[in-house]
Simulated scan of single mutants.
Amino acid sequence: MAPLASYKADFLRAAIAGNILKFGSFELKSKRISPYFFNAGDFYRADLLEALATAYAHAIIEAHRSGAIQFDIVFGPAYKGIPLATAATIRLGQLDPATYGHTTCYSFDRKEAKDHGEGGNIVGAPLKGKRVLIVDDVITAGTAKREAIAKIEKEGGIVAGIVVALDRMEKLPSPDGDDSKPMPSAIGELRKEYGLPIFAILTLDDIIEGIKGLASEEDIRRTEEYRAKYKATD
């Protein structure tokens, strides 16, 4: 496997140093017991938030320059997506002001529509007729992203793609509870359903490659075993 891009490696080190990426034993919503846990909500310290914003901006710039996504607005679904979209937009303008400094905007949604003042469901740049890039932490079942897509389309926006911090590369639970069956991931299902480009700063493969020398051999072994057991077909 090729070495991680420098921004990915920097992001991974920051996540471990800030205890955002943890190793141990964690019960997920799916009831699976994961040997690692990632919580982007813990990037609340200034230096960690800067590392997060930088990683998102580099991932977006990389996808944009490759031609995979074209966008006008960075959209953060409430609530975790709000600081992510805000920070990423600022960092985009700092890293490449000629491309993003005066044209790229951000927006986010309200959980409940405001019935006074300016009203509405959206705060920030209007979405109508604009290409909208969704930025969020992870995709677990895909429910929150489907809701965000529906809100954007209702406002007249065009969803251009999705960027998340982590792709666990993990298959969805089988309807009959048999985890030995091949199944797609939540990201794979969204790609298939909407035909959208979806990118992640880090994948589980990146984590396993990047934590060598940063995590114990036992943590690496358990994470590799978890990947082998639950890796998705897509």
Rank of each mutant, 00 (worst) to 15 (best):
M1P: 08
L4I: 07
S6K: 15
Y7P: 10
K8M: 13
L12K: 00
L12G: 00
A15S: 10
A15F: 00
I16H: 02
A17T: 11
N19C: 11
N19Q: 14
I20S: 01
K29I: 05
K29W: 11
K31Q: 14
R32V: 02
P35V: 04
F38D: 03
N39W: 00
A40M: 02
G41V: 07
Y44N: 09
R45W: 13
L48T: 13
E50G: 06
L52N: 07
A53M: 03
A55E: 00
Y56H: 03
A57S: 06
A57E: 07
A59M: 13
A59C: 15
A59S: 14
I61F: 14
E62L: 12
A63D: 06
H64G: 09
H64W: 12
H64C: 11
G67S: 04
A68I: 00
V74R: 10
F75R: 01
P77H: 03
A78S: 07
A78R: 04
Y79E: 07
Y79H: 11
K80Q: 02
G81D: 09
L84K: 05
T86C: 12
A88Y: 12
L95H: 15
D96C: 12
P97W: 03
P97E: 00
A98T: 11
T99C: 14
T99I: 15
G101T: 11
H102E: 13
C105I: 10
Y106I: 11
Y106C: 14
F108G: 04
F108L: 06
F108W: 07
D109A: 08
R110W: 03
K114N: 15
D115W: 13
G117P: 13
E118I: 15
G119H: 07
G120I: 09
V123D: 03
G124M: 05
G124S: 06
A125D: 03
A125M: 05
P126M: 05
K130P: 04
K130Q: 12
V132E: 02
L133P: 05
L133A: 06
L133H: 10
V135P: 01
D136Y: 06
V138F: 07
V138M: 08
A144E: 11
E147Y: 10
E147W: 11
I149F: 10
I152W: 04
E153C: 04
E153H: 04
K154S: 15
G157V: 07
V159M: 07
V159G: 04
A160C: 14
L166N: 06
E170Y: 00
L172A: 10
P175C: 13
D176S: 14
D179R: 11
K181H: 12
K181V: 14
P182H: 08
S185N: 04
S185G: 09
A186M: 03
I187A: 09
I187V: 15
E189N: 08
L190N: 10
R191C: 09
L196F: 13
I198Q: 02
F199Y: 08
I201L: 10
L202M: 12
T203E: 14
L204Y: 00
G210W: 00
G210Q: 01
G210P: 00
G210D: 00
G213D: 12
A215C: 09
A215V: 08
S216V: 12
E217F: 14
I220S: 02
I220L: 02
R221T: 11
E225K: 10
E225T: 07
Y226A: 10
A228P: 01
K229I: 08
